[in-house]
Write a protein that binds this DNA or RNA. Structure first.
Lengths: 216, 216
DNA sequence: ACGAACAAAATTGTTGACAATTGTGTTTCG
DNA sequence: CGAAACACAATTGTCAACAATTTTGTTCGT
């Protein structure tokens, strides 16, 4: 009994397959290192193998899937060392974005960041790590967005997608939210002060702390 | 009379097509914004459309090709503003690599960097901008390599591929070599002094200068 | 029983034909 | 003469069958 959500009207088969498969991987429905057999996926999603194939090639380029010649595809597993290396890249790239945002953002956008900071503070006070994690995401996304650096944003989104599993694990750590919150508030303050140098430093400090947590 | 270099023995069709097409784009054989019709390419390279298709999807992910639904593919043109944004990303990522290299490189590797610096000095003295450009490439590649940051290296290679056209244009600028040389020598010195902070700063200063040149 | 050669199954890679979509030129009507 | 409707051509998207490759299981000889 195939579980397909029939390809909605205008959507093309490959795009549908890509979206479904990507979401399945990101939400952890596919076990790490699980084999991805083209025929099975094709039946499951109600599209043909050609579409699955195209989707897999794209996911490989995004670093979510590993493909070996004549041996098939599997969900890529990101080791802790890799997660650290990826976060080091995030560190410098988000630093760049924060510096740009400190200079380029409108006053309304700065207010939005302040609001997010307040919401995060409340989430921690209420002991809701799940809400906090979502807000955390949103804050980083906004900072990237406001920077106007299309290239950096693209790279960062690719990197972030590879970290879902580790991030999930990190969010539930007790005490982590509190430290993370302070770092985020410092970040917001530096940006609102329109000080690019300080903003970059704050982002770096925050992600350095994330790296510590990853390793510990 | 198709111009194909017959797919050599063990090589699979898609890989062959990908390599050929990529090389053609990077070497400027395809005019910027040139339309890439799947049928034509298939005949030209002696493979089937499916292989070309897979190659195009991968090249799109690498940012070398632009694809629009039902409308085909074309060589992506990188505007000057984009080139600047890309170089800003390079700036922080290569900064990261340089800092890591300053700490992690072996003494033999540091000697290799010094040798490259000497060769570059000679190339400028002899007025050979082409040789200098090659050495320039090699120096950056070595610094990346010695850092051991697989993730950063991967990102940087993707970014660099998008800049070929602009880089070519930049290399022939009169007087550019001399300034570039000084920046590179400073970079090498900082790394050899095993000072990560200074190494990062030197790389950034150099690429900031490249950005100036791109704009001017 | 152990290992090598071999046969069978599973899976990916390739191919050519067909369907769907978009852009263009032409016709027709006001 | 201009604009909307239409038909046509070019190109990409999809499909199902076929070929090649790798893995697995089996048999045979020692």
């Amino acid at each position: 009994m195939p579980n397909q959500a029939s390809p909605s009207s205008g959507e093309q088969a490959k795009q549908h397959a890509l979206a479904r498969l990507r979401q399945a991987i990101l939400q952890g429905e596919m076990a790490p290192a699980q084999r991805l057999v083209e025929n099975e996926l094709a039946e499951q999603f109600g599209v043909t193998r050609a579409s699955i194939r195209a989707a897999l090639i794209e996911l490989e380029a995004q670093g979510l899937v590993e493909r070996i010649r004549n041996r098939g595809s599997r969900v890529r597993v990101v080791t802790v060392e890799e997660a650290v290396a990826i976060t080091e890249c995030r560190m410098v790239l988000e630093g760049l974005c924060a510096a740009k945002t400190a200079v380029a953002a409108t006053d309304e956008q700065l207010d939005e960041l302040a609001d997010l900071g307040a919401a995060m503070t409340k989430a921690v006070a209420d002991g809701e790590p799940l809400t906090y994690s979502d807000l955390n995401h949103e804050l980083h996304a906004r900072v990237r967005e406001f920077s106007g650096q299309r290239t950096a944003v693209e790279l960062l989104e690719r990197l972030n997608a590879q970290l879902v599993r580790h991030r999930f694990q990190l969010a539930l750590r007790p005490g982590r939210s509190q430290q993370s919150l302070n770092e985020h508030l410092a970040m917001i303050e530096a940006i609102r002060a329109r000080d690019p140098r300080a903003a970059e430093e704050a982002v770096r400090a925050h992600l350095a702390s994330v790296i510590e947590a990853l390793r510990g």
